[in-house]
Design a binder for these strands. Structure first.
Lengths: 340, 340
DNA sequence: CTGAAAGCGCTAACAG
DNA sequence: CTGTTAGCGCTTTCAG
């Protein structure tokens, strides 16, 4: 494919001015006589001139593009996150590049150090494979905002939510509804930090506060957090014959999968078992029954992340690391008993 | 934020060679003595040198980045499409930039003419707002592959599926199962081309072939194709009191929404009403009941699109427009009666 | 208000 | 095998 693009020089020649003048016209500089401006604009139109962004970036070091690194986009939560980031960034005049990591530490590190970071003004980074030990690797020479629950108190801005408090509130909500044997799906063995670890902590805090015993046989592990994993964990829970009257799933996909598996076995929701999700993904409203869930305040989270990042991009000096916590709430629907 | 990056010259100076030699080392050229190579590599490591991609692009005119323009990413079909494109492109060594259009014609035209096209080697373009009349606007000076059913026989490569045949096959499948009053959800009034128009055509062809009457009161309009629209259309169908024993939804989101609404009204699926979707999105497997659907062969579609695009990127001459049709199949699940 | 010249970081072409 | 030169298209001095 050939791509013969007109340059400033072509325009300048046609308009009978210098390249600089063309540049001034294009960039809305004031110091151009209006007759000159008109001639230049005519030449631009005639040649179909478009400024070459590559060259402009080379010159300015800015691209007006930010990258969003995500584990994947084919999980509702991340799809909604991507959508939100893209449309929020657009409002600030930025284009978003999405880079996928699969949640693998190696690929995450690769995103952090990739030469692509030079053609991007900043990075919003949703880490999953990296862990607290990798915190120092987040010290990078470009604007960076971290999302998620893998690393705290790192050298960069961090936007996340009150996972422990939210999970605790969700569990307390189930307790308030009268559920007494509350199972969990989505735990990660030995994990302390990270969404799974924090949400499990919140769950335990709620049990403790209600003086209810913690029963490890009610804790369902689930590595990835997709529907199929939720379905598998629910089946295992049923097979174990441990009695339970509610399931707190650590995300909505797990919950939707678990609901499917429970219903396959003839379990009635919410009468026999109540189900609580986490994320408030759109699908939850259309499931049968619709899904009660913890809403993690994604709009605020995204808005904060973008604002912090742009502040960093526009700032000359090095800003200290900042942390923002998005607010949460509980979204009551049909998969749990009605409030009494 | 300061960003002091080492350049080829810094490396060259430290290694005691010329910039060109550094370039040779970085780009794996053979003509470098191994001792020199070692010195240069040591210098690169010492300075943490990373090639500046902006400059490289400026020089080569290539960015190894392709853009994927989509209406949105928060609809399972597009999320899965994006995921597939990103991972397929990665296999060919390309990074993907996603640009969202919201399905609005203006924004689609903007994507086509944006100066960003100069920093992208090619574009995979899923049109929704543009129509057949806009075909000529697809004649662009860069590699472009069109996806979707809005424009046919345009001046560019086009990858799509046999919509009419697939919709016909889906409808025939329902007929074979014994359904006789088959409603439709997702029609667009007056649309002839476009997914809605083509799928409606396939539906009518199947009715004709089976000598079954076409009843306009069984056709449910739905502008956007989200769950909520499917739910609304199903409610309207029920409210109209027209008898029907099956619903063919033009995509899975509509079907999932419709199933939700039908079940809210106590309709049993598939005993009283069978439901057929289109897209074979992952969620369909986990719905209750799981969704029978038309599988549009997305992997093949994506692979073809990427291959056509890369061929165009690598080709010196102008290739003629090509059209590829992905194969389809029917995915039988619980939302329709079992085959007799 | 406008022009000329320099240079962002890289690589292709050509010498040595 | 390695160095020198030039230039991608733009913007930013600095002179007119």
């Amino acid at each position: 494919m050939t791509r013969k693009a007109a340059t400033v020089r072509d325009v300048a020649k046609l308009a009978g001015v210098s390249p600089k003048t063309v540049s001034n016209v294009v960039n809305m500089q004031a110091h151009v006589r209006s007759s000159t401006r008109a001639r230049v604009e005519a030449a631009i139109a005639a040649l179909g001139y478009q400024p070459n962004l590559t060259a402009r970036s080379l010159r300015s070091g800015r691209t007006r593009t930010i990258a969003l690194a995500l584990p994947e986009v084919n999980l509702d939560y991340f799809a909604e996150l991507a959508e939100a980031v893209i449309s929020c960034a657009e409002r600030y005049g930025f284009t978003v590049v999405i880079e996928l990591t699969g949640g693998h530490r190696e690929r995450e590190l690769n995103v952090l150090t990739s030469p692509r970071r030079l053609v991007t003004d900043g990075l919003i980074f949703s880490a999953l494979g990296m862990s607290q030990d990798d915190a120092e690797l987040l010290r990078r020479p470009y604007p960076l905002v971290l999302l998620g629950e893998r690393i705290f108190d790192g050298p960069t801005d961090h936007v996340t939510m009150h996972n422990v408090a939210a999970a605790r509130a969700g569990t307390e909500y189930l307790i308030k509804l009268g559920y007494r044997r509350i199972a969990v799906i989505g735990a990660h063995d030995k994990e302390v930090v990270g969404s799974a670890g924090l949400r499990l902590r919140g769950y335990r805090e709620a049990l403790d506060a209600a003086a209810m015993p913690f029963d490890p046989s009610l804790v369902g592990e689930a590595g990835p957090w997709h529907r199929r994993d939720g379905a598998a964990a629910a089946r295992q829970l049923l097979a174990s014959r441990v009695p339970f009257d509610a399931v707190f799933c650590f995300n909505d996909a797990l919950a939707l999968g678990a609901m499917r598996a429970l219903q396959e076995e003839g379990v009635r929701i919410p009468e026999q078992v109540g189900v609580l999700g986490f994320d408030n993904v759109d699908d939850g409203q259309y499931a049968v029954p619709s899904l009660t869930t913890v809403d993690p305040g994604m709009p605020q989270l995204v808005e904060s992340a973008i604002r912090l990042l742009i502040e960093r991009i526009d700032s000359e000096e090095d800003l200290p690391p900042r942390e923002v916590l998005a607010p949460f709430s509980i979204c009551e629907r049909e998969s749990t008993r009605a409030t009494r």
